Simulated assay, not measured.
Amino acid sequence: MKRIDPRQHRSIEKLHKAYLTLAREESSPLTIQLLCKEANVTRPTFYKQFKDIADLKYHLHDTLLRKLKKSLTIVNPKPLSELQQEERSRYLTALFEHIYENHSTYETLLVEQADSRFINHMKSVLHDYIDEGITYTGYHHQLRVERPLVISFISGAYIESITWWIQHHYPYTPTQMAAQLIDLSIYGPYNLHDE
């Protein structure tokens, strides 16, 4: 992978931030001139990195999604029966920590200016994580419905839960959110074991 000069990296970060700020405002059409002014960079600096605004937006998406995928990378997987309670939610906790660390970006792309391309790619990352996780549980042959439906159901529930968490101003810590979603994924929403 090509190394980026630290100055270029700073310019890219400033342009990402400017894009998010202006996307939230919506007061006037987004232009390269406005982006450069907000980011305090020159037009040649913009064009050195990106061919147009869409290219900048997709770069922002890809950068964030790479970090998301990294936060969900399962290392040293174990079957569910061998995992301690706190181990079950480790990777999902990392996901919620990642979202909280990048909260302004997720607030913009998931809630304030919901971006369907970004959401679909985010679902794809979650889909892969859930698919992998189901395999590692050791119970993947005991699913009550078809695996693709289970994966679709859980990944959709995760996206909606993340959106709810953002819209309600993070009422639970990343650890609490992760633990609740793992419990819901494994046991469902009802306390039926008491009956």
Rank of each mutant, 00 (worst) to 15 (best):
N120I: 04
Y106K: 01
E107W: 14
T73N: 04
N102H: 07
R88A: 02
E132S: 08
L60P: 12
E107Y: 15
A114E: 13
K78Y: 05
L60M: 05
I99F: 01
T108E: 02
E101Y: 05
L126P: 00
I74H: 00
H121F: 08
N102P: 04
R90L: 15
K67F: 13
G133D: 02
L83K: 09
Y91M: 07
E97Q: 15
T93Y: 07
T108D: 03
L95V: 03
T63H: 14
I119S: 03
R88C: 02
L95M: 10
D115N: 09
N76I: 10
A94M: 10
H121C: 11
Y100M: 12
Q85V: 14
R90P: 15
I119R: 06
E101R: 10
L72D: 01
H121P: 08
P79M: 04
D128A: 07
S124C: 07
L80D: 12
Q85H: 14
Y58D: 13
H103C: 14
T93C: 11
L109C: 00
I99A: 06
L83E: 09
T105W: 12
P77T: 03
S104P: 14
L64P: 13
L126D: 00
F96V: 03
L60N: 08
D131M: 06
L95D: 03
L60W: 07
L72Q: 02
Q113T: 12
R88P: 03
R90Q: 15
S104K: 15
L83F: 04
H121K: 14
N76H: 07
L72F: 00
R88D: 06
L109Q: 01
V111P: 05
H59A: 15
L80Q: 08
L126K: 02
E101G: 11
H98W: 09
D62R: 03
D131H: 04
L64T: 12
S116D: 15
Y58A: 10
T63A: 11
H127A: 07
Q84I: 08
A114F: 10
T63D: 13
Q113N: 14
H121E: 15
V75F: 04
S89C: 10
H127F: 11
L80M: 06
D115Q: 07
E87C: 04
Y100R: 12
Y58K: 06
D115L: 00
L92V: 04
F118I: 00
L92E: 05
R117C: 14
I134W: 02
T93H: 08
P79K: 09
K67N: 13
H121A: 11
K123H: 09
G133F: 04
V111Q: 04
T73G: 08
I130D: 01
S81G: 12
D62H: 10
K69Q: 15
V75K: 05
Y58P: 10
Y129A: 03
V125A: 05
D128I: 04
I130R: 00
L80G: 09
H59V: 06
D115V: 00
G133Y: 03
S116K: 14
Y91E: 09
D115R: 05
